[in-house]
Design a protein around this nucleic acid. Structure first.
Lengths: 251, 251
DNA sequence: CTAGGACCTCACGTGACGGGAGGTGCAAGC
DNA sequence: GCTTGCACCTCCCGTCACGTGAGGTCCTAG
C-alpha cells in the first residue's frame, strides 16, 4: 500500500508549489527539505513525505519565519510547543517592525510636507537640522516635541516656520550693525524670538537646554554654514535675551 | 578665512557622527562620501564640506533610503525635486511594508490563537490547510472570508472549529460502516455538515467551488494524509449532500 | 627603542535565494 | 546513428549595508 508511491522531480514540485527550482535546490543544500531518493544520474526524487514537509516549510515561510527557525521548530521533539514559541517571538518581531515602518513613514511624510510648505529654506539645512534634532534630544524629548506639534496643529506650525527666517534675518541685521541689545527695536525682535522658541519647545527648560547645547556644539563644529547659527549671532542673541528677560538661556 | 579649515580623521568623524569607522570606509569605497584629502601615508582627511555631505547622507539614511537612492538624489541637478521624488517613492514603499507587517502579524496571531483553542487537532494539518487556503482562494475570496470571520466573531468561530472534528468523525464512521446516505442519522449529520460549511463560506458559491476543487485536488495529490479528506469520504459526503438537498456540491 | 593606538587594505560572512555558465541524461524525430 | 531540445546537475558570483577579523603601516609618548 505504501511501497512505491509517486515520486516528484524538482520541476514538477516547483510547478506544484509555486516555488522555484532554485529554491528547492537551496532547501536541499541547507538540509531543510531533502529528497529522500536520487536517481542513478543524480536527479532529485521527492517522496510524498518530502512534499508534505515542503508544504509545512512553505506555510511557515509565508508567516515570515527564517529558514533556521523553521528547521528548528520542525526538528523539535514537541513541535506544537516549539512552534508556539517561535511564533510568539515572531509576533513581537513583527510588532517592532510594523512600528518602525510606521514611525519612518511619519518622518518621511512630515519631511515631504515641510519641503512643500517651506519653499524658501534650503532643503539641505532642513536635513541637517532634522539629523541634529535626532542627535541632541532624548527619546522622551522627541516624544514631547511630537505631542507639542500635534497640539499646535498644522497651521500654527507652518506659521512658526514661516516667521522664523524673518526673525533670524532681522536679528542678524542688528547683530551685524552692532545695535545695542537694549535698543527698543532689538528688544521687540528678541521678544518675538522668545515667543517663537517657546511655541516650539512649549517652554520646557530641558529642551531649551538641549537646543542651546546643540547650537553651540554645532556652531563650533560646522561653522556658520549649513543652516547653523554663527557663534557671533548666538552670542548676540544671548545678550539680547538676557537684556529682555534677565539671564535666561537663548533660543 | 576659508583657506585651511579643520580636517577630520575617520575616527574623529566616527565619534562625532555616531557612525562606525567601517561605515565611513564603506561610504568612501562606493564613492558616497569621499574625503577630499589624504595624508601622504594614506590616512583619510575629511574637510568640513565632506562632513556636511556626510550629515546629509546620515539624515537620508535615517529615513530608510538606500545608499544608491541617496547618492542619486544628492547628485541630481535639482536636489529639491529629486529628493521629493525619492521621498514620495519611499513613502509608498514604507506604506506597503507597514501593511505587509500588519497582515503577517494578523496571520501569526490568528494561528497562535487557533493553536491554543484547538488543542486536539494536529498542528501540521493546521499549517497545511492554511497554505492550501492561500493557494486555492483568490485574494478577493480571502478578503471575503476575513470579513466573514469578523462578522461571526471569535466565539462563533471557535464553536465551529470545535464542532468540525466531531462531524467529520461521525461522517467517517458512517462512511466506513457503509450506512446508506438516506439513513435519517446520516441525513442529520449531513445537515450539520452543510450548516457548518455555510457558516464558514457564508454560502458564497464561488468559495464553495474553490473548497471543492481544493479538496479533490489535494486528495489526489497527497492522499488522505496530512488532514486532507480521503477520496472515499469525499465521495460519500457528495452523495449524502445530494440526498439531502438535491445535487449541491459538497463541503 | 618599544609599546600602544589609530589607521590602512583585503577579504570573507550575513539571508534567501536569482541567475548564469558549462556539462549530463533522456526521449523523439530524422 | 545523429541531432535537437528539454529537464536536470553542480559550481559560483551577485544582492545590501555593512560587521569582523587578519595582517601590516604610521605616529606619538615614554
Amino acid at each position: 500500500m505504501s511501497g512505491n508511491e509517486r515520486r516528484w522531480s524538482v520541476g514538477e514540485l516547483a510547478r506544484a508549489t509555486g516555488l522555484t527550482v532554485r529554491t528547492l535546490h537551496h532547501y536541499d543544500e541547507i538540509g531543510l527539505v531533502e529528497p529522500t531518493e536520487r536517481t542513478a544520474s543524480g536527479h532529485r526524487r521527492y517522496t510524498d513525505a518530502d512534499v508534505r514537509r515542503l508544504y509545512r516549510v512553505r506555510a511557515l515561510r509565508s508567516l515570515g519565519l527564517g529558514l533556521d527557525a523553521i528547521a528548528e521548530s520542525l526538528a523539535a521533539p514537541d513541535t506544537r510547543d516549539a512552534l508556539r514559541q517561535v511564533l510568539a517571538s515572531q509576533l513581537d518581531h513583527l510588532d517592532r517592525e510594523a512600528r518602525r515602518m510606521r514611525d519612518l513613514r511619519a518622518q518621511v511624510r512630515s519631511l515631504l510636507e515641510r519641503m512643500t510648505s517651506t519653499e524658501g529654506i534650503e532643503v539641505m539645512s532642513l536635513l541637517e537640522t532634522m539629523q541634529m534634532i535626532e542627535d541632541y534630544y532624548t527619546p522622551e524629548q522627541l516624544d514631547y516635541l511630537a505631542k507639542r506639534r500635534e497640539e499646535l496643529g498644522e497651521d500654527a506650525i507652518k506659521e512658526v516656520e514661516r516667521a522664523w527666517p524673518e526673525v533670524i534675518a532681522a536679528m542678524t541685521a542688528h547683530q551685524q550693525a552692532d545695535t545695542p541689545v537694549d535698543d527698543p527695536q532689538v528688544q521687540a525682535v528678541t521678544r518675538r524670538w522668545i515667543e517663537l522658541g517657546d511655541a516650539f519647545t512649549g517652554g520646557d527648560p530641558g529642551i531649551r537646554d538641549a537646543v542651546t547645547k546643540m547650537l553651540t556644539d554645532q556652531g563650533g563644529k560646522l561653522g556658520q554654514q549649513g543652516g547653523c547659527m554663527s557663534p557671533e549671532l548666538f552670542e548676540y542673541v544671548s545678550r539680547a535675551i538676557a537684556a529682555v528677560s534677565g539671564g535666561r538661556s537663548p533660543q
